[in-house]
């Protein structure tokens, strides 16, 4: 094309529960520009070709976590994924392993429940008063959990996880990494509580260490490493409960 764009074909999943028994697809021809991401093409479709397409997006800078979708079969953050990575045909589907609300929009209720189940907040035996000032935390102590605090909840890891696909009650990569993030925070005293959750319902031991979650993570959180560490700690904690009498300070 004269303006330096070239056309790619987008095959996009369409589903409206009021109309469709099952998802269908629609095909769009989009004149894409050199630096466009997958999201730019979806927004072009929405604005210029078909305003009935529903998808979530906001920040378009890879931090709000809204725009995760399966692109050519792989979970991707569409605002961060360059169209140059793909050939002439691009298939866009909702994230796998989630119920679909409409088109490319998936339901997050189940995830939000798991998210809350790991108690993702600082637990203290005694609350610290504001007047006491901030905790001291060395750069090394921060480094222990910092990586696991970078999750943007984009859900790509759930779409990639083979265990989530088969065991819906599995807490899943992001939620376990989040619980582990608090367990590893020098300011927190809630590891025993969370380890009980980790060992109980929604067990984290289902994880087969397929590592798919870490491979698709756009923020390099490495949830697989978090799960592995969390398993180890949860077992140690459980073993320790046999050799100590009474409640133990973490």
């Amino acid at each position: 094309m004269a303006d330096g764009s070239k056309t790619k074909t987008f095959i996009v999943t369409r589903f409206d529960p009021d109309r469709h028994e099952a998802p269908t697809t629609e095909t769009y021809e989009v004149p894409v520009r050199e630096r466009w991401k997958v999201l730019d093409a979806l927004n072009y479709i929405k604005d210029e070709l078909d305003p009935t397409l529903s998808h979530r997006w906001s920040c378009r800078m890879a931090v709000c976590g809204s725009c995760g979708m399966n692109v050519n079969g792989e979970p991707k953050l569409t605002c961060k994924t360059s169209l140059a990575e793909y050939g002439d045909t691009v298939r866009v589907e909702p994230l796998a392993n989630f119920p679909v609300v409409r088109d490319l929009v998936v339901e997050l209720d189940g995830f939000m429940d798991k998210f809350r189940a790991v108690k993702p907040w600082i637990i203290k035996a005694k609350e610290r008063a504001v007047e006491e000032g901030p905790h001291r935390q060395s750069p090394e102590e921060l480094e222990v959990f910092r990586q696991f605090s970078m999750c943007i909840n984009c859900m790509l890891c759930y779409a990639a996880c083979p265990v989530v696909a088969n065991e819906p009650e599995f807490l899943g990569p992001a939620a376990i990494a989040l619980g582990h993030r608090y367990n590893e925070d020098s300011r927190d005293e809630g590891a025993r509580e969370r380890n009980r959750i980790f060992r109980g319902e929604g067990t984290i031991f289902s994880c087969s260490y397929a590592n798919e979650c870490s491979e698709v993570c756009p923020k390099h959180v490495d949830p697989a490493a978090a799960i592995n560490q969390a398993k180890f700690r949860a077992v140690l904690d459980w073993a320790a409960s046999f050799v100590t009498s009474g409640p133990r300070e973490e």
Binding site: W121, P134, R136, S138, D185
Partner: peptide, 17 residues
């Protein structure tokens, strides 16, 4: 400071402040 108490991972000086 409240945010710090709630877990915000503020960057730190060497002395932990």
């Amino acid at each position: 400071t409240r945010l710090e108490h709630w877990g915000c991972p503020w960057s730190r000086n060497e002395d932990g402040t």
